[in-house]
Design a protein around this nucleic acid. Structure first.
Lengths: 120, 120
DNA sequence: GAAATCAGTATACATAAGGAAACTAGTTAC
DNA sequence: GTAACTAGTTTCCTTATGTATACTGATTTC
């Protein structure tokens, strides 16, 4: 599928291949979107709960990123009109479709960690 | 592997799962690292050649990102002492280990594109 | 001889992303 | 009555990212 050699090639071939890769990156950009999605894979969560679980995230970033994820239909926001109001976030089926990608990210991260161990 | 339910769970479980995911994200952060790697999957390249192939990247960003990728041993920089000097960038075997991840990114991007088509 | 190419670096600037802390308004626990 | 919790928003600030232009020193092309 991808050339292994050193020879010249058609730059359009690469650009065409790259386009959908960049589409994904545009939607998952930044430091927090994937961690937020992973957090919701483990169950529905309330705002503060997520903030506690995802180490280092601020309320501002969490709020902003959740809005973007909601717009892209990866995450769903549900308000229960109890008093005080309860807001629950959950993963959508579309958000679940990132499962394979996230598995790959995780397994590469594990390999990388092992590699660093060996070196030091 | 990942819970489907809504029930409460141990936040440590999620944090542990998340750690290697975040390790990967730290190394592949930003808009350009993955596109640079993909470009080199298609063959060794010279600086200007890459700049032409990766649409939108500036010399400054390309230079900066290549340095970071080199530090992490995902990309190799080779200088030929011809006149004028020729500098060639290539993917390392370690860089190749991102192949599955990039395939997933690409196939998710393709799905996403299809989905957007249906909607409009 | 002028222009373009190569592999970047330097400078100045503008915008985006991210972080720290305070704050809201209502509720519950002590 | 005081403190803490909830779901965020607001403000101020610092980095990071991106843009634009000019520059290097040698070489090839017209």
């Amino acid at each position: 599928m991808i050339a292994e050699n050193t020879k010249a090639h058609d730059p359009k071939e690469c650009r065409g291949y790259l386009q959908p890769v960049r589409d994904s990156l545009d939607i998952l950009n930044g430091k927090w979107k994937i961690p937020i999605i992973v957090s919701l894979y483990f169950g529905n969560k309330r705002f503060k709960e997520m903030q506690r679980e995802i180490e280092g995230i601020t309320a501002k970033m969490l709020s902003k990123e959740l809005k973007e994820l909601e717009m892209n239909e990866l995450v769903k926001r549900t308000v229960f009109d109890s008093l005080p109001v309860i807001v629950e976030y959950s993963i959508t089926p579309y958000g679940r479709s990132l499962q394979n990608l996230i598995n790959e990210l995780r397994s590469w991260g594990l390999q990388h960690r092992k590699r660093l161990m060996k070196k030091s």
